[in-house]
Design a protein around this nucleic acid. Structure first.
Lengths: 227, 227
DNA sequence: CGGTATCCCCCGCGATACTG
DNA sequence: CAGTATCGCGGGGGATACCG
């Protein structure tokens, strides 16, 4: 493979693999515990299946990943090896660095599918009602096909839906996607944004009041932006 | 720039910049204290000047790097900003990870120019004679044009030469480049390799005896290979 | 020395369709 | 669902020459 740098330097050897497009993101999903193909894919919606498969194969070739045949169903289960797991603190530090210092977001970066995926992993189900709770998000500032999604909590098990799940929503959230993501990333305070009418909630008063506590926000929200 | 991932995810925003070819290596040289163009270039011999300049410009655009006009001479002085310096532990951890887990070297990775550059930064001048000491390395296993280089210590100031510096060498080192790099990286013991005749030294007995102590080896040599 | 400018090739990647 | 296969393009980057 000609991504090589022609140097024995350990940093160059590391970067040769890690700097391939999507690779770090794939590893990040694996570190998050995703173990099946489509599970990984949902967390990286914009990679093509063929390229995802290629990346997984490369990681396997480098012995950072093992793929095991699943019993009883098609497909494989993917798990990082010791070498892959050893990347955890590097990937986390890169994410924190990104939160601190990476460029500002622009409109191209506001993929709702990824937001939905992130959110469904970080709902504070302890604070949510028992049984089924359905939240419908309706965004402006995104293409029509992606302007809404649903988060469904059923007794602690949270799912995301990009298509109408068929249940009536308990809470509706209206916002410009940028405003919402700024809250999600910890740049703005949700209560202020609600008061400023940047985020509008509809539903029963109890639910609407409780809603802000249902969101744990991005795991990186606690790291403040530098400069 | 279309290296974007279409995600607001801080990790994706970080990787979008950091995973460009050569970028991490450029940052690494800057972290090592290289501040001028050709100084950086010597530490990354295989990048083309135009691409190096492009990478520096990108880092500047992302405000990780400042270029200041030099007074009294052409060119600029390059310095990492706070955001760039904040990458230090990430880059170091990646290098350590590479030493632990990256793929094995092969013949394509054994660039003598880079070895020379690495060595001249890590000579133990305290252990070397006063005045001028010239070491000539002669390697097998590399293209003829690059099969020798010189390391010159003059009272603690070490320079590397890819062309004959004109001084008679005090010590000659003959080795296959792979054998030598395995020592340099800490995979093999230099004394054993000398005894096994894998590394041959010629010169005055005092110099030959002292030579192993002149090398500090790679800064990563202390990290042992895993698996 | 310290960069710029140009040219062109190759292949990485995106898109899409397909299959068990 | 869990991947495979194919195809075509765009531009990233390698090589090289140039310039003050």
């Amino acid at each position: 493979m000609k991504s090589s740098y022609g140097q024995y330097c350990p940093l160059a050897l590391a970067v040769e693999l890690l700097s391939r497009r999507w690779t770090i993101l794939v590893i990040s999903r694996l570190l998050d515990g995703c173990s099946q193909f489509n599970e990984i894919h949902r967390g990286i919606p914009r990679i093509s299946p063929s390229l995802l498969n290629q990346r997984l194969t490369e990681l396997e070739d480098y012995e950072l990943l093992e793929r095991k045949k699943l019993k009883g169903q098609r497909g494989y289960s993917y798990h990082l090896t010791e070498g892959g797991l050893a990347l955890e603190h590097i990937v986390m530090d890169m994410a924190i660095w990104g939160q601190h210092y990476a460029r500002d977001m622009n409109n191209e970066d506001l993929d709702p599918a990824f937001l939905a995926w992130s959110m469904h992993l970080r709902m504070n189900t302890e604070m949510m009602p028992e049984g089924r709770t359905v939240i419908e998000f309706l965004f402006t500032g995104v293409p029509h096909e992606l302007d809404r999604f649903w988060i469904v909590n059923l007794d602690g098990k949270v799912e995301m839906c990009l298509k109408n799940p068929g249940y009536e929503a308990d809470v509706f959230v209206f916002a410009d996607i940028l405003d919402f993501i700024e809250v999600w990333r910890g740049f703005k305070d949700i209560h202020k944004q609600i008061r400023a009418n940047k985020i509008k909630l509809r539903g029963s008063p109890d639910h609407v009041k409780a809603f802000p506590d249902w969101l744990m926000l991005s795991a990186l929200a606690k790291y403040k932006r530098m400069k």
